[in-house]
Simulated scan of single mutants.
Amino acid sequence: MPLLLLSLLVVVWGTTFPIEKIMLETISPFSLNLFRFLIADAVMLIIFFPSIRRDFLSVWKAGMLLGISMGAGFVFQTWGLVYTTPAKSGFITSMYVVFASILSFIFEKTRVNTHTIIALIIATFGIYMTELSGRVFEMNFGDFLTFLCAIAFAFQVLLMTIFTKKYEGKEITLTFYQFLVITVVNLPFYAFSNHNDMWNLSDLIFILYMAIIASVVGIIIQAKYQKRIGTVPSSFIYAGEPVMATVFSVLILKSTFSQTEIIGFVMITFAAIWVQIFNLSNSRKKL
């Protein structure tokens, strides 16, 4: 069940890429981030107020750390896009899959086996071919900011496993803290940036979808089920996000992709499946 739910979560997150591209034609990035998580805050307070009130003070440190890591990821990614290309941003951001595995090895003392190392190498090359299509990578200031974004998201994945194990049953409040911090972090960027937003009906529908389905439902699923699989195996599932983003870009935006990019998608998918099969076989041996 955790494997299925996290895989479905990746599908949902994949849909947000073409949706955001459509929305950014009429509203600014910081407006999108602010209102997405402001709505998520409101929805969680309405539905889960008793749980949030009960656990608010007991998990505030963990919730703040999760929120800071996730909020920093969104800010650095948005800021970096000002100075770099979407392709390079996608490549560097997706590297959080690799960074999360390294952080898990350092902080959780996770044993890294040969299968995982090979899969990481395959996934890295797959992400590179997918996002940069074999072009030479040259780092600029925007790339550096996006690199910080990838590290922040990697810490969010790591801390999600650690804190949801420690605070079993308090995943709702931990999720609320993340959205609350992201909202607060985005407020000054929204206030001091130029934005001539022209909201329409489709934008409102999209923002509700991203706030309620991709954010509230999505992060609650991550909080409840990622810990059952572990940081490293979950990271490989999340590596499928750019693949799903590509699929929905083709379906929604009628995008086309080169043979090199398609090979990259196959490599990412293969690496993710390989790690899951290896973990399942290990679990059965232990039984």
Rank of each mutant, 00 (worst) to 15 (best):
L280W: 15
L6P: 14
F270L: 13
S89D: 01
V82G: 08
K224Y: 07
T269N: 08
E261D: 03
L201T: 15
L5T: 12
M44P: 00
V12R: 07
E131A: 13
F248L: 11
L208E: 10
V82N: 09
I106F: 00
R111G: 11
F107T: 12
F105R: 08
M198T: 15
G14S: 05
V247Q: 10
F206N: 10
T16G: 01
N279H: 05
F163H: 11
V243M: 03
I19S: 12
F99Q: 04
G71M: 05
L253C: 15
M64I: 14
V157G: 14
M23E: 15
E168P: 07
K285L: 05
F30K: 05
K61S: 11
Y190F: 08
L180P: 11
M23N: 14
D55T: 06
R284N: 14
M210Y: 04
H195G: 15
F125N: 10
T93R: 01
N186P: 00
A191K: 03
F163K: 01
W60G: 03
I182K: 04
F257T: 13
F163R: 02
V216P: 04
M210F: 03
T183E: 09
N140S: 14
I47S: 00
L45C: 01
N282A: 05
S249Q: 07
F147Q: 10
V184A: 09
A87R: 06
L208N: 12
A152E: 09
A72L: 07
F137N: 05
L103N: 05
I39F: 07
L187E: 14
T164I: 05
L3T: 14
I118P: 14
T231M: 01
I121A: 15
E168G: 08
T93M: 03
D143C: 02
F141L: 13
M23H: 06
T260I: 06
S255F: 08
I92F: 04
W199V: 03
R111A: 09
Y96S: 15
Y167D: 10
T15K: 01
R54V: 05
A214H: 00
I27W: 00
D41A: 05
I237C: 08
T16C: 03
T130I: 08
L120Q: 03
A271V: 09
P29I: 01
L287A: 06
V216D: 11
S215C: 06
S234W: 00
T93H: 07
R135Q: 14
F91N: 02
T130L: 11
G134Q: 05
D41N: 12
F236T: 14
I262Y: 09
R228L: 13
R54L: 09
I263M: 11
I19K: 01
L253A: 15
I122W: 07
A272L: 10
M1W: 13
S202H: 10
K170E: 00
P86Y: 02
V275T: 11
I220P: 02
L187K: 10
A150H: 03
Y177C: 02
T110R: 07
V275Y: 05
V266Q: 09
Y238Q: 02
S235Y: 00
Y209D: 12
M198D: 13
V75I: 14
F155H: 08
S202I: 15
I172F: 00
